[in-house]
Design a protein around this nucleic acid. Sequence first.
DNA 1: ATCTTTGCAAACTTTTTGCACCAAT
DNA 2: ATTGGTGCAAAAAGTTTGCAAAGAT
Lengths: 144, 144
Amino acid sequence: MNAPVERVDALCQLLRERGERLTRARRAVIDALVASGDHLTAEQISTCVQEAHPEVHRATIYRTLDTLTELGVTEHSHLGHGPAVYHLADELHQHMVCEACGDVTEVPTSLLRNLGKRLRNDYGFVMRPTHFAIVGQCRECATD
Amino acid sequence: MNAPVERVDALCQLLRERGERLTRARRAVIDALVASGDHLTAEQISTCVQEAHPEVHRATIYRTLDTLTELGVTEHSHLGHGPAVYHLADELHQHMVCEACGDVTEVPTSLLRNLGKRLRNDYGFVMRPTHFAIVGQCRECATD
DNA sequence: ATCTTTGCAAACTTTTTGCACCAAT
DNA sequence: ATTGGTGCAAAAAGTTTGCAAAGAT
């Protein structure tokens, strides 16, 4: 549950360079995301942060995530119904969600490259993958 | 705003064959979907239905859409944040949404075929496209 | 000292649920 | 006459907002 300090520091540094204030809440959110190295819901981040700083409010988590997203530090995706999941922006990956068992697999975005090219050629559309998951059924559920 | 009667009748027929009751509310929802021939939010369907039947409640719209989905008559997709959109299940298409201007384009699912094959080969995953939109920027917004 | 950010409470949006009544078969 | 569907009101789930007070620079 401990985040690599230098990674967290680098991101805090980045905040300061952009003229953003570095608060307890913000450091804690960054900490949670770096520590998990994974996708977390706002609620999970909140729980995580409140272990160390019980006074930090859910609303602050959302506002912090907004700020971090504007700075290009975080992104969120939707895996299905329910809450969005947040992760560091450098962990670029597409999610594949089984609608039967809920299992989430990460797939390299390279798989989407051809689709991206076609959409650009045919429609002039610049795809930004990873915002929405790919929905379907995983191997186990599909063969039932 | 008038739906092709035979199309609506066919779907009502289908309900009856499956042992479902045919109510004013259900016929009205089917009517709205067939008439629009497009994707509508639950709220839009509700508004539409209430023009003819003001007593029909939003909750009934949701329950009806659930039933119709179980019967394979309707599906819903997510185009972004905000409400899901519902459409007849036979109108199978992938949505492409511009996150800048909100413009929605429908693209044939054939474009996704290769991706589908690779996911199946590499992961055993059976993709069900169309549940989530593809997000990105349309030609105009991308070239700004 | 200044001006952002926070905590709180309350609103908001979309969807779901419990329950008594109504209506389709 | 049955049973399933409906209307209503209320809650749930996820997220956003207004405001006064606290805190970072």
